[in-house]
Each structure stands twice: as structure tokens, then as C-alpha cells.
Simulated assay, not measured.
Amino acid sequence: MNTVTVYSTGPSCIRCTMTKRVLADKGIPFNEIDIRDDANAREYVTQDLGYTEAPVCVVEDGTDQDHWSGFRPDHIDRIAALT
């Protein structure tokens, strides 16, 4: 099973909280990185991936190609179906 990295902006971000809740409910392992506290992660999300909205989810499958921004239950369901 692939792990998802959730780049969040902390507990005040409702979309971040919902994303983490649904990932946990579906049994998808994830790591959270708060981009407010991690300049390298913030640069990766904004410069490398081009996102301006949190959360940003990156599926750690070795390709760096599967990622999205915002609360996207459709993508979470897709990842859950792969397990």
C-alpha cells in the first residue's frame, strides 16, 4: 500500500482536517507535513508542484506524478481502491 504525504497548513485548515480524516477512515497510511513550519516543503508544494491551496496530497509511489490539491474524496477513493 502506498503512503500519502499530506502537506497541510495546520489544524485550522478544514480541508486539511477532512482529508486526513477520510484517509484515516479508509485505512490509507499518511504522513503530515505542516508547510507553515517547513520552508523546504513549502517550496516543494508551491514551486515544484505549483499549488497554492492546501492540503496538497502526494502519493508516495516513487513516480512523483500522483498528487492533488484540496479536499478530494474522489482521489482518496481511487487510492483506497488500489489497496
Rank of each mutant, 00 (worst) to 15 (best):
Gln47Phe: 13
His75Ala: 11
Arg15Cys: 09
Val4Tyr: 01
Gly50Tyr: 11
Asp34Ser: 03
Phe30Trp: 09
Asp66Thr: 15
Gln65Gly: 06
His75Arg: 15
Leu82Glu: 15
Thr83Gly: 15
Asn40Gln: 13
Val6Glu: 03
Ala24Leu: 07
Tyr44Trp: 03
Asn31His: 10
Ile28Trp: 00
Pro73Asn: 08
Trp68Glu: 04
Thr83Ala: 15
Cys16Ala: 02
Asp77Thr: 04
Val59Glu: 00
Ser12Arg: 14
Ile14Met: 12
Val59Met: 05
Val58Gly: 01
Cys57Ile: 01
Ser69Trp: 10
Pro29Glu: 04
Ile28Phe: 01
Pro11Ala: 15
Tyr7Phe: 15
Ile35Pro: 09
Leu82Arg: 15
Ile33His: 02
Ser8Leu: 03
Ala54Gly: 05
Lys26Asp: 01
Thr63Lys: 13
Thr63Ala: 09
Gly70His: 09
Ser8Thr: 02
Thr83Leu: 13
Thr46Ser: 13
Arg72Cys: 06
Gly50Pro: 08
Gln47His: 13
Tyr7Thr: 00
Leu49Lys: 08
Asp34Leu: 11
Arg78His: 14
Leu82Trp: 07
Asp64Ile: 05
Ala80Arg: 06
Thr63Ile: 08
Ala24Asn: 14
Arg21Val: 01
Asn40Ser: 13
Thr5Lys: 07
Thr46Met: 12
Arg72Asn: 08
Asp74Gln: 07
Leu23Met: 01
His67Glu: 03
Arg36Val: 04
Ile33Glu: 00
Trp68Tyr: 09
Cys16Thr: 00
Asp64Cys: 13
Thr19His: 10
Asp64Pro: 08
Tyr7Leu: 06
Val56Cys: 01
Ser12Pro: 10
Tyr7Ile: 02
Arg72Thr: 02
Cys16Leu: 01
Ala39Met: 12
Gly62Ile: 07
Pro29Cys: 07
His67Phe: 06
Lys20Leu: 04
Ser69Glu: 06
Thr83Tyr: 12
Cys13Asp: 06
Asp61Pro: 12
Met18Gly: 01
Gln65Arg: 15
Ile14Glu: 06
Lys20Pro: 10
Ser8Gly: 07
Ala39Ile: 10
Arg21Asp: 05
Leu82Tyr: 10
Ser69Val: 05
Gly27Lys: 06
Ser12Tyr: 12
Gly10Ile: 00
His75Gln: 15
Cys57Gly: 03
Ile33Gly: 01
Leu82Pro: 03
Thr52Gln: 14
Arg15Gln: 13
Asp34Val: 00
Phe71Arg: 10
Ala81Ile: 05
Thr19Glu: 10
Glu32Trp: 09
Asp64Phe: 12
Tyr51Asp: 00
Val6Arg: 04
Val6Gly: 02
Thr17Phe: 10
Tyr51Thr: 00
Cys57His: 07
Tyr51Trp: 08
Asn40Ala: 14
Thr83Cys: 11
Glu60Gly: 03
Ile33Leu: 08
Val58Thr: 05
Val4Gly: 00
Ile33Ala: 08
Val22Ser: 05
Val4Ser: 04
Glu32Met: 09
Ile79Ala: 09
Leu23Asp: 00
Thr52Gly: 15
Asp25Asn: 14
Lys20Ile: 00
Ser69Thr: 11
Pro29Asn: 07
Ile28Leu: 03
Ile14Cys: 04
Asp34Gln: 11
Asp66Ile: 12
Cys13Gly: 02
Arg15Phe: 13
Leu49Met: 08
Tyr7Ala: 02
Leu49Pro: 01
His75Met: 15
Ser69Asn: 05
